[in-house]
């Protein structure tokens, strides 16, 4: 079917099966490859995107559920994501980098919801995202750093 998708503020007209998971529409049809495939069963978070601001595993929802909604991916820009990127850079967080798109989107969602998350908030919010390289210590620190950077600019 013909579907219009709004990704990072840009409209994309695509012709796809309505049950195709959003992940594959984004990656294979539209060609935005920053959102990653990791498991296909909503277990690892590599495919995380925001849909109308809500954290979503894009491998787990059909594209038809994203029609007329705002989709936000790692290629997008938001205030919290920018602070997180800076914090990820300051803390030299990534190793292979593959899961970090999803980690950054999940962290963006966390900061959108909670201005100053505690370690426990981070544990809860970020445990849906697997990092096989094991950068959790740095991700946690990175989220705290992003909060600090944001407060410093206020």
């Amino acid at each position: 079917m013909d579907i219009n998708l709004s990704i990072n503020g840009k409209l994309h007209a695509v012709q796809v099966q309505e049950d195709m998971p959003l992940l594959w529409v984004i990656r294979d049809i539209i060609g935005l490859t920053g959102t990653k495939f990791g498991c296909g069963v909503s277990q690892c978070g590599a495919c995380s995107v925001l849909i109308d601001g809500k954290l979503t595993k894009s491998c787990g929802i059909p594209v038809s559920d994203a029609i007329e909604k705002d989709i936000f991916t790692i290629e997008g820009n938001s205030e919290n994501l920018e602070f997180l990127r800076q914090a990820w850079t300051d803390g030299n967080v990534p190793q292979c980098g593959y899961c970090q798109s999803g980690q950054l989107i999940a962290a963006t969602s966390l900061l959108d919801l909670i201005e100053k998350p505690t370690d426990k908030d981070i544990d809860e919010a970020m445990s849906a995202n697997i990092c096989r390289c094991g950068t959790y210590t740095r991700i946690k620190k990175g989220i705290h750093t992003a909060v600090k950077l944001k407060n410093e600019t206020k």
Binding site: G31, L32, T33, G34, T35, K36, F37, T73, I74, E75, L84, R85, W88, T89, N92, P94, G97, Y98, Q100, S101, L104
Partner: peptide, 23 residues
């Protein structure tokens, strides 16, 4: 010393090309 990865910009913007991203 403590050097940061030379690839951080790509890793934090989803622009690093992994095998699965080749088109």
């Amino acid at each position: 010393k403590n050097l940061k990865s030379i690839d951080l910009k790509d890793f934090t913007h989803g622009t690093a090309t992994y095998g699965i991203d080749v088109r």
